[in-house]
Every structure is written in structure tokens, then in C-alpha cells.
Design a protein around this nucleic acid. Sequence first.
DNA 1: TAGATTGTTAATCGATTAACAATC
DNA 2: TAGATTGTTAATCGATTAACAATC
Lengths: 213, 213
Amino acid sequence: MQTNKINVSPRTYKRLVVYYKKLIQLKGQGTEYVSSVQLAKQCELNPSVVKKDLSVILSEEGKPRVGHEINKLIEDIEKSLDYTTDKKAIIIGVGNLGKALLNYRGFEDYGLQIIAGFDCLDATVSLGEIAGKPIYHVNDLQKMVKKLNVKIAILTTPGEVAQEVAQKLIDCGILAIWNFTSAHVIAPKNIAIRQENMAASLAILSNQLKQLL
Amino acid sequence: MQTNKINVSPRTYKRLVVYYKKLIQLKGQGTEYVSSVQLAKQCELNPSVVKKDLSVILSEEGKPRVGHEINKLIEDIEKSLDYTTDKKAIIIGVGNLGKALLNYRGFEDYGLQIIAGFDCLDATVSLGEIAGKPIYHVNDLQKMVKKLNVKIAILTTPGEVAQEVAQKLIDCGILAIWNFTSAHVIAPKNIAIRQENMAASLAILSNQLKQLL
DNA sequence: TAGATTGTTAATCGATTAACAATC
DNA sequence: TAGATTGTTAATCGATTAACAATC
């Protein structure tokens, strides 16, 4: 069985997460079957988009007149979102945001384990650990990435050094970078990178607000 | 002069933030003129998309053969991103992420002032303040939103109560919600809402990674 | 059966990209 | 002038939406 090798578009992925949340909630309320029309209504989406999204990841067809068995549906989404595989990540830059993410347990629901933090300040490194996770000096990056066998890095350094640090991470063998810095980081094609551009988000929100006033 | 009343699409907005960052950087390096082709190369974008984006927000035309005067360009982007207007926001839910955002100073560059935090736990409220910003009980939300005259709320509560709290915020007169919770929050059309869905982002990144392996 | 839902195909919409005349 | 860049128009691409035959 070779599931999840299908190419799911980022937009579909994003929506699958929304479906997943909603389905868990509906299941908690005792729902056993969900139609795509119902799910669409709950998520404020067009039914066609839900049908199409589900068609990509469904392991078996839904039942006409009834919809989809909720447990089966949840399972299929879990599989395609890869929540079940354990993923390890490190945090680079243990400032306010870095600390918050080290403390945050919410990612574990999605199979992401933050296993260590790195910083360039001796004062921070000498804390030894935060939330039970060891803090290392960035000088030890090369050594530790290999040792910990980690492929994902969460970038929370100041924007000014983001590009430089990202390059260092790539050199150390990191394959995926989740960039929370204010800088737009550029990486080669064979590296997965995701820009969590907060400034852009804020700009969009405040533009929406301005349209309302 | 009635600028910025033009409808700029969210995608264009997002890119404008990227241009802005890059332009500030180039200016620091002594650049005086930038062509859209150069800017596109720097941001890894198609020149046409840059030209089109800029055409929406430019206050005067660029010069053939030379490009755009960098200061003028930066100014125009600043105007359309509305970085100059001061925006006040409150944080609802002073957990790890809420605390980090209260401490984070980066938003001030974009004109966003986080002026207070709210929580439902007496233990948290009794801290009095974090990073110099007062913490109030959510019971005082109605009163304080009016008093502080704030229109933007940053939602960092647990996902389970997100929808409920959002409704309370709207009832109190909040017009824009920046949702960092794990729940997808639904709001009426006359409210600006932005879902900062971390789980979805993580899912997309880990899918990208899987494609590489 | 009647009717709601399925999955899929076709139509629409919007965004990205390419092409090009106009400019200095 | 020659040539690089401009702004805009047309072509392409992909995603969303609507429509509908097939199903139980």
C-alpha cells in the first residue's frame, strides 16, 4: 500500500487540517457519518472544494445518501497529514519566541517533537535547559544535528542573521526550515522552507480592518 | 489625495512586505535605484508579478532604463502597508505564546502596539503586568476594550474556547481578530479575521519534506 | 420509489507569466 | 542612437465553483 505519495496541494493540505479539527469536534458530539456538504457548511467552504479535497485522500468511497464514516475519514486525513509519524525538530534562537515554542506542547498533537534549542549567547546556553529540553551553543550545531539525527529546524533568530544561520543549518544537513524570523529566507530547491511571515499577516489583517472602517 | 483606498489583494500585500524588507536592506547597502527586474531576482519572483504589484501602489511612474527611486518606493510601500498609522491591540490568553507576544517588540516596527493582556486565571491576572503591559481578567473585557479604545485582538487562548472568546470579543466591539489558536474561528462578514494556523503550516512543511526524501 | 449524496466533468474565475509597444 | 526598463495587454495556468449522471 503506497498511500500519501500523491501530490496534495498546499491549499488542500491547509484545508485538511481544518476538516480534521472539525471532525474531531463532531465526533466528540457523537456524530457517526458526515457528508461533504455538512462538513463544508461547518467550515464555511464550498461543498465542491471539500469533495475534491477528500477525493484525493480517501481510501474508500463514501456512501451515497449517507456520507462518510467519521472514524474512517479522520483516519484517512491523519494518514495524509502524516500526524502519526514522529518528527523531531530543533529551535535556533532562544529568545522570547524561541522560549515560548520550547514550552509549547501543542505541536506534539501533530507528531512534532522539539528536542533541543540552540543559541549564540553564553548566558542563554548556560541555562542548560528550558522546559526539559537542552540548550546548546550554535557552535555545536554541526555535531548535534548529526547526533540527534534531526531534519527540521525552527528558525527564531533575529531577522538580520536569519539567512546566514539558515545556510549554516543547511550545511549541517537540515532539510526543512520553518522560518519565524522577520526576514525572507532563501534556500535551494532541495530544501523545504516555510516562511511564517508575521509582518505580512499583520499587514493583511490591518488592511482588512481598514476596508471595514 | 486619496491613496490606499485601492483594493490590494492579500497576495500582493504579502509580497509588498517582502519587497519592503529587501528594499530596506538594499538601501542600507547604498542602492539608490531599483528596477522591478532586480527586485524580482532578489525576492525570487517573476518580474511581471513585481511590476504588477508595484503598479497598484506606486504614487509616480518609474523611469525607463533606470527603475524606481528607492526612497520613493519604500515610502509608497510604507503608505500602502499602513505602517505609519499606530494600531493598538490586546492579547487574550496569557499562556506561553501570549507571554511571548507580550514580550516581543518586533511588531512595533509595523505600528502595532500590544497594550494589555487578558486571562481568566486569577493567578495570571495577579501578576499585574508582563513586559510593562497590564494584565486584566477577561471579566473586565467589555469595560477595558471601551476604555482602551482598541479594535484589534490577538487570540492565544486554548483552542477549545477560541470560538466562544472570539464571540465575546466581537460583542465587546473588537473589529479585527488575529487567531493564533489551534481552532478555526468563524466570524461574521463585518469582522476582519486572520487564521494563523500553525498546525496547517507545519503540515505543509512536513509534506514538502516528505516529497524530498 | 424518491431523494440525498456521491464522485467527476465542465465552466468560471482569478492569478501568474509572457510579450511588446512606449520611453528616455 | 541603441538598449534597458517601463507599464499594460494578452496568453497561460491553476484553483474554485457549478452541474449532473450514478448510486443506494
